[in-house]
C-alpha cells in the first residue's frame, strides 16, 4: 500500500518534471525569440529587454534558465498572453473550470446512464435487449462529436428554438467569478434573479453536455457490458447460485461489485477522450473553456498561451490519470500491474 503510493508519487513528480521541461523547450521550438515566447511581452525597449533577460537569466546556461523558469511557474508568473495582454495564469484558471465543469457533468451523466444499461445488456447477453443496446452504442461511438454538435444546433436551436445557440449564460446576468463552476457560482452568489439565472445557465449547458454524453455513454455501456459478461460465468457466481441465492441476490451481492472493479481504471483512460471531445464541443458552442481558448490562441499565433495552456491541460490529465490509477490499485490490489480493461 505504502509502496504503491510512493511509486505513484515518484511517477507523478517525474512526469510533471518532463512536462515542465517540454513546456520550457517549447519556448525555443516556437518561431520567434525564446524570451518573447516565455514572457509574452513585446520588448521593443532595450532596457526592458535587458530587465526581462535578467529575470529569466537568459545569459546563463540552459539548466539555470530552466530552474528559474520552474521557480516562476511555481510563483504563478506564467507570462502574458500576446492577444489579450492579460496574465496567463489568471486566464487559464478562468477558463479551465468551465471545461472541467462541462466534462464532469457529461461524465456523471454518462455513468448514470451507461452503467445501468451496460448491466442490462450484460445480463441479457445475446438476447434482443443486448443486441439493441449494443447496436445503439456502436452508433453512439461512431458518431463524430463535432457533427453531432452541429446537428443538435440545427435541430434544437435553429429549428425548434428550445435551447440557446452558444455561450455559457445570457449576457443579462452578471455572475460573480468565484469557483469558476457556473452553477456553483450562481448558487453561492446573492444576485437578484437567482432562479432565472440558474435556469438560463442550465439551458445553455444542455446541448454541449448532451453531445459529449452520447459518445461517452456508448463507451461506458460497452465496457460495463463486457465486464458483466466476463463476471457472470465465474465460479463464485455459480457457487452463489448453488447456495440457493436468488438471481437478484447474486447480482446485487456478487456481480455488481466485481463487475464495477475494472470500470474505475477505465475512467482514467476515458478522461483523455472526454477532454478532447469537450475541447471540440467548446469551439462549436463558443463555450468559454480551455479548448476554445487554445484554438483561438492557435489562430492568433499566441505562443505563450499555447505553452502555458499545454502545461495546464496536460498536468490536469496526468494528475487525473495517476490518481485514478492509484485509487484503482488500492481498491483492487489483485489487479495486475498495468492491466487495462477491454471493450
Amino acid at each position: 500500500m505504502f509502496r504503491f503510493v510512493l511509486r505513484h508519487f515518484n511517477l507523478y513528480v517525474l512526469t510533471l518534471l518532463v512536462l515542465c521541461i517540454f513546456s520550457f523547450w517549447l519556448a525555443y521550438l516556437f518561431p520567434g525569440d525564446p524570451l518573447v515566447n516565455l514572457t509574452g511581452l513585446t520588448l521593443n525597449d532595450p532596457a526592458d529587454y535587458q530587465a526581462m533577460a535578467q529575470k529569466y537569466h537568459m545569459d546563463s546556461g540552459i539548466l539555470v534558465q530552466f530552474w528559474h523558469y520552474l521557480v516562476l511557474l511555481w510563483d504563478g508568473d506564467w507570462g502574458f498572453s500576446f492577444s489579450s495582454g492579460l496574465p496567463l495564469y489568471q486566464e487559464i484558471f478562468d477558463s479551465l473550470p468551465a471545461t472541467v465543469e462541462l466534462s464532469t457533468y457529461a461524465l456523471l451523466l454518462s455513468l448514470l446512464i451507461g452503467i445501468p444499461l451496460g448491466f442490462l445488456a450484460g445480463l441479457r447477453h445475446h438476447r434482443t435487449t443486448d443486441n439493441a443496446l449494443l447496436a445503439a452504442s456502436v452508433v453512439g461511438y461512431s458518431t463524430p462529436v463535432f457533427w453531432l454538435a452541429l446537428l443538435m444546433i440545427l435541430l434544437f436551436s435553429l429549428q425548434l428554438g428550445w435551447f440557446p445557440l452558444s455561450g455559457r449564460i445570457s449576457l443579462l446576468f452578471d455572475v460573480p467569478h468565484d469557483t469558476g463552476f457556473i452553477l456553483v457560482d450562481i448558487w453561492l452568489s446573492d444576485m437578484p434573479n437567482k432562479g432565472a439565472a440558474m435556469i438560463n445557465a442550465v439551458q445553455h449547458m444542455v446541448m454541449p453536455v448532451l453531445s459529449i454524453t452520447i459518445v461517452t455513454t456508448a463507451i461506458v455501456l460497452r465496457l460495463t457490458r463486457r465486464a458483466v459478461v466476463e463476471v457472470m460465468p465465474k465460479e463464485y457466481v455459480q457457487a452463489a447460485y448453488a447456495r440457493g441465492l436468488s438471481k437478484h441476490q447474486v447480482i446485487l451481492r456478487h456481480v455488481v461489485r466485481n463487475a464495477m472493479l475494472p470500470i474505475l481504471p477505465l475512467l482514467a483512460m476515458q478522461s483523455t477522450i472526454l477532454l478532447t471531445n469537450a475541447m471540440i464541443v467548446e469551439v462549436i458552442y463558443s463555450w468559454p473553456g480551455i479548448g476554445n481558448w487554445l484554438i483561438q490562441a492557435i489562430y492568433q499565433r499566441d505562443y505563450p498561451a499555447i505553452r502555458a495552456g499545454m502545461l495546464a491541460v496536460s498536468t490536469l490529465v496526468v494528475s487525473l490519470t495517476i490518481f485514478i490509477d492509484l485509487l484503482a490499485r488500492i481498491i483492487d490490489p489483485t489487479r495486475e500491474r498495468g492491466a487495462r480493461a477491454k471493450i
Binding site: 511517477l11 517549447l26 477532454l275 478532447t276 479548448g291 492557435i298 499545454m310 496526468v318 490519470t321 495517476i322
Partner: peptide, 26 residues
C-alpha cells in the same frame, strides 16, 4: 520507459495536435 510513456501519452490528441501545429504551422 513504461511508466513515463504511460502517463505522458495520456495527453489528449487535440493538445498534441495544437502543439505540433503551433511549432510547424497549419
Amino acid at each position: 520507459l513504461n511508466h513515463l510513456l504511460d502517463s505522458l501519452l495520456a495527453i489528449p490528441t487535440l493538445l498534441i495536435a495544437i502543439i505540433i501545429v503551433a511549432i510547424l504551422g497549419v
